[in-house]
């Protein structure tokens, strides 16, 4: 019976037609490579000669004051915004500037937006189901069936994000922190190579923050994770390497201790925050 079924899989007749699980070539080092990227909106340079590399399996935090270009940088990587000049490569084979948003997403770049957007009318389980890497054309989606393998994969992710007990509830009833985790789970369903996470702990309680830190550090290694965050305490708790952006380009890069002792960083960012804290 199973032989018959495998024979009926018409898309699996020729092995060479089956796309490789991960076509990203990281043999030459970085998984993400930005060089001299510039983008301006109405003359304002949101990103100015930005160069940045992220290694495979790395957990990188990106900090910087408002308007430093953090979100614009994410937009460029995911194909939402096209830079005026520069290069953006994923591995050493994929030129992201020639690809559109869905293509980049299917390549294995997942992005978590600042404001959690989950599908509130659908259950937690269904949210993960939709996010799963699968054939996303119309007819395969119409005829798609739930099977044990998919269920196991969803259960696995539910375990990681700690929402197993809420699997059957509509996502609309989740708390803010739970929605953030669900969204990270949705990214994981796509088996990404690179996760872009935009301000994951904004509006979270202490406890939720701790849980998120655990989650993100647990993810690094299996995939590369880039976190954009304002909360310095949180960055200190997870980061191995920190990049400071200022006015659209890299101001400093290194360990948290290194960058926080850099006088330029103190001046533009940490200083400003320290002042705020003392007020």
């Amino acid at each position: 019976m199973s032989i018959l079924r495998s024979l009926a899989q018409r898309d699996r007749v020729f092995d060479f037609l089956v796309p490789a699980a991960s076509p990203v070539d990281v043999r030459h080092g970085p998984i993400l490579y930005l060089e001299d990227v510039t983008v301006s909106f109405d003359g304002f340079k949101a990103i100015n000669d930005l160069s940045l590399t992220i290694d495979d399996g790395e957990l990188r935090c990106i900090i910087g004051p408002n308007g430093a270009g953090k979100t614009t940088m994410m937009d460029i990587i995911t194909g939402k915004t096209r830079p005026d000049s520069g290069q953006v490569w994923f591995g050493s084979r994929h030129d992201l500037l020639t690809m559109n948003e869905p293509e980049i997403a299917s390549l294995g770049i997942g992005r978590k937006f600042q404001k959690p957007t989950v599908f509130e009318a659908l259950t937690v389980f269904e949210n993960l189901e939709l996010a799963m890497a699968a054939d996303k054309r119309i007819l395969p989606t119409l005829t798609a069936r739930m099977n044990g393998e998919i269920r196991d994969r969803i259960d696995e992710v539910l375990e990681v994000i700690g929402l197993k007990a809420l699997r059957g509830r509509p996502a609309g009833i989740l708390s803010h922190g739970q929605k953030q985790w669900l969204e990270i789970g949705m990214l994981l369903m796509q088996r990404p190579r690179l996760l872009l996470v935009d301000e994951p702990v904004a509006g979270m309680t202490e406890q939720e923050m701790e849980r998120t830190a655990e989650l993100l550090t647990g993810l690094a290694g299996k995939q590369s994770v880039v976190v954009v965050e304002h909360d310095m305490g949180f960055v200190r708790s997870i980061a191995r390497k920190v990049t400071v952006l200022h006015q659209g380009s890299v101001l400093a890069e290194g360990s948290m201790d290194q960058v926080s002792s850099d006088p330029r960083v103190v001046e533009v960012y940490l200083g400003a925050e320290a002042e705020e804290e003392t007020v």
Binding site: T78, E101, P102, A105, S106, R111, F113, T117, V118, F119, E120, A121, L130, A131, K136, T141, M186, Q190
Partner: peptide, 11 residues
């Protein structure tokens, strides 16, 4: 409910 999000999932 969230068109941009759905597009971003690759649909």
């Amino acid at each position: 409910d969230a068109e941009a999000r759905t597009r971003f999932l690759g649909y």
